[in-house]
Write a protein that binds this DNA or RNA. Structure first.
Ligand code: ZN
Ligand code: ZN
Ligand code: ZN
Ligand code: ZN
Lengths: 166, 166
DNA sequence: GCCGCGTTGTTCCAATGTAGCATCCATGAC
DNA sequence: GTCATGGATGCTACATTGGAACAACGCGGC
C-alpha cells in the first residue's frame, strides 16, 4: 500500500529497500512506515512519539510494535539511537562519500558514527570522522581494550543557531 | 556519624571533601554515603540498585532521594553517568596526572572524560585522552558546531578478560 | 492444502526518572 | 536565645522508556 512521502524521504526509503534486499531481510509495510516517520522528523524522535504518530494509521500499535521495529531498523543500520536523548534518527551513511567499513568481528552492521546535537534547535548532524574513530581506537588500544561498539555524541550549538542567536 | 569504608574509598571521599569545601557546597552524610556506595562498587551501578543499598541504613529513602543526590554528585564532578548503561561510576580524575581544564563557558564542572566498558566483567576504565577530546572538538569545529558537553563511551573486552578468556 | 517460520497483535510488567509539596535543619541576623 | 531564611530531605504520586511472554496472522515452499 502506498503512503505519501516527500522526495528526500523517498530517496532514503528506496536506499533502505536496496540495503534490505542485499541483506535478505524484509522491509515490511510497518518497518517502511516507521522509517518514514523517523526520516520525516526534523529532530530526533522518541519511541513513544513515533508510536503516537504510527497510531494515526495503525490503530492497534503498542509499545512492542515500535520497539521491535526500531530493533530491526537498528540491526540493519537504517537508523541510529542517540543515547543522550533516548531518541532515534535516520542513518544518512549513504550521503557520506565512502561508507565506513567495519572492523571484522564486529557483530553490528551499523557503521561507526558520531553525532552533534544542537541544544537549541534540537537538530542532529551525523558525521563519520575516521580521525575521531581512530583516536578512540588508539586510546582503547593503549588501555589494552578490544573495541566493540562506540558511542560518540556531543551537545552544543549548531552553526545556524549560532549565527541566528545574536 | 561514621560509616565503615575501605582505604581507597576513604581516599576518594576525603578528596571529595576537599572539592566540596573549595566549591562552597555541603557534602552531607547522605551525599557522602551515596558516593561511598558508588566508589565501593566494582561495576557501574544503577540508581535503583544504589537506592536498595542505601535503604540498608536509611530506611525511608525514595527515588527522589537518590536522584537528587546523584544530581549533586554529577554537578560537582564527583561521579559520572554512563549513558549506555544508565549507571554511575566514581570520577577518578584526581588519579590522572593533570586534571583536564574545561574550555571557558562550559557550565558543567565535570571534566571531559571517556569510558571503556568491558562487556564481560562489566568494569569500566575512565580515561581522559586530550587527543580524543581534541579530535572531537576539531570535527565539531569543521561542522560549525560550538561544543558543549560530550559523551564518549566504548563497549568491548578489557585486557584482563581478554587474557583470561582462552 | 498444509506446514514452518518470520512478523505482528495483545497484555502485562520492569526499569528509569521527575513533579510538587511538606518538613526538617543548619546557619546567620538580631 | 530566638527567629527568619534557604538548602536539604521526606514523601506521594506519576511520567517515560523498554521488554517478556504468548497468541494470532500470513507469506513462503512443499
Ligand atoms: Zn549512519
Ligand atoms: Zn541549532
Ligand atoms: Zn572523571
Ligand atoms: Zn573485563
Amino acid at each position: 500500500m502506498g503512503f505519501e512521502f516527500a522526495p528526500r524521504t523517498l530517496s532514503l526509503l528506496s536506499h533502505a529497500e536496496t540495503i534490505c534486499a542485499g541483506r535478505g531481510v524484509r522491509l515490511t509495510d510497518l518497518r517502511r512506515q516507521v522509517l518514514g516517520l523517523i526520516v520525516q522528523s526534523e529532530a530526533p524522535t522518541g519511541a513513544y512519539e513515533l508510536l503516537d504518530r504510527l497510531r494515526a494509521t495503525r490503530h492497534n500499535a503498542a509499545p512492542p510494535t515500535i520497539y521491535r521495529t526500531l530493533d530491526f531498523l537498528l540491526e540493519n543500520g537504517l537508523v541510529h539511537r542517540l543515547e543522550r536523548l533516548a531518541a532515534f534518527v535516520p542513518c544518512i551513511a549513504h550521503d557520506h562519500p565512502r561508507e565506513q567499513a567495519h572492523e571484522p568481528g564486529c557483530e553490528n552492521p551499523g557503521h561507526a558514527a558520531q553525532f552533534l546535537i544542537c541544544r537549541r534547535c534540537k537538530r542532529v548532524v551525523e558525521i563519520a570522522d575516521p580521525a575521531l574513530a581512530d583516536a578512540l581506537a588508539e586510546a582503547a588500544g593503549r588501555a589494552g581494550f578490544t573495541l566493540g561498539q562506540t558511542t560518540i555524541e556531543a551537545e552544543g550549538i549548531c552553526a545556524a543557531c549560532d549565527a541566528a542567536g545574536k
